[in-house]
């Protein structure tokens, strides 16, 4: 347990340290959300119709931003060797890194999601569900994104490769999360979408670390 906290604190310190990854991710999110009315037109009805889906799309894109550095910087400077020789197996190391990624970047983005969705014209009744589903979906984004980050270790243009690996895997949460919000806005039952989103994220938390650890071992050898 002490190993977990040692690593978790380091990961948070690195995420919030110089470079301010989370702030950049939120700023990127704000930019995408601002560009949307310029692209589709500012008519309120039209914007309100696309607000939940666009908020989710922007969330998925913003979640990609800091993934590139998740394993890459430790791989480049040899810290991944050290992490391998620690008190816990690489599976727990990967899970800890993704959890820290979620806390440092996913949660700030989740806090911003209701703001963006409401600014685009989504109903204010949707705020609690938007916040909850963005936080839950962000957990899935962090763990699925971690798989892409580990798989692209050592490749040039890792960032683009991560996007190509990971974006198709982001399809279910975008459909389920955006769908739950659209269902609630339309007065339908939003629970199935939300619960399936939870199932997706928990599956990512349970299975992702094994894939990440295998990819890291492969990159180190």
């Amino acid at each position: 347990m002490s190993g977990f906290w040692t690593l978790f604190r380091r990961e948070l310190a690195m995420a919030w340290g110089k470079g301010g990854g989370p702030i950049v991710a939120v700023a990127f999110y704000a930019c995408v959300a601002t560009l949307l009315p310029l692209a589709v037109g500012s008519s309120p009805q039209r914007l309100a119709a696309v607000a939940p889906g666009s908020a989710w799309l922007a969330l998925a894109l913003a979640s990609l931003l800091s993934l590139e550095r998740l394993f890459e910087r430790d791989y480049e400077d040899g810290a991944l060797d050290l992490l391998t020789l620690g008190p816990v197996p690489l599976e727990i190391v990967s899970a800890t890194k993704c959890l820290a990624q979620w806390v440092s970047t996913g949660l700030p983005l989740a806090l911003f999601t209701p703001i963006a969705a409401t600014a685009l014209g989504a109903d204010t009744r949707l705020i609690p569900l938007t916040l909850a589903s963005a936080a839950l979906g962000g957990l899935g984004f962090a763990f699925v994104g971690g798989i892409g980050a580990a798989l692209s270790l050592g490749s040039r243009r890792g960032g683009v490769l991560i996007a190509v690996i990971v974006l198709p895997l982001f399809v279910p949460p975008i459909i389920l999360g955006g769908g739950a919000m659209a269902a609630m806005a339309g007065g339908l039952n939003w629970q199935p979408g939300f619960l399936l989103l939870g199932a997706y994220s928990l599956a990512a938390v349970a299975l992702g670390p094994f894939a990440m650890a295998a990819a890291c071992r492969n990159a180190l050898s």
Partner: peptide
Amino acid sequence: HMAGHQDGLKSNR
């Protein structure tokens, strides 16, 4: 312990 030229130190910490 493994210690080499890849020292795993983060330059901005």
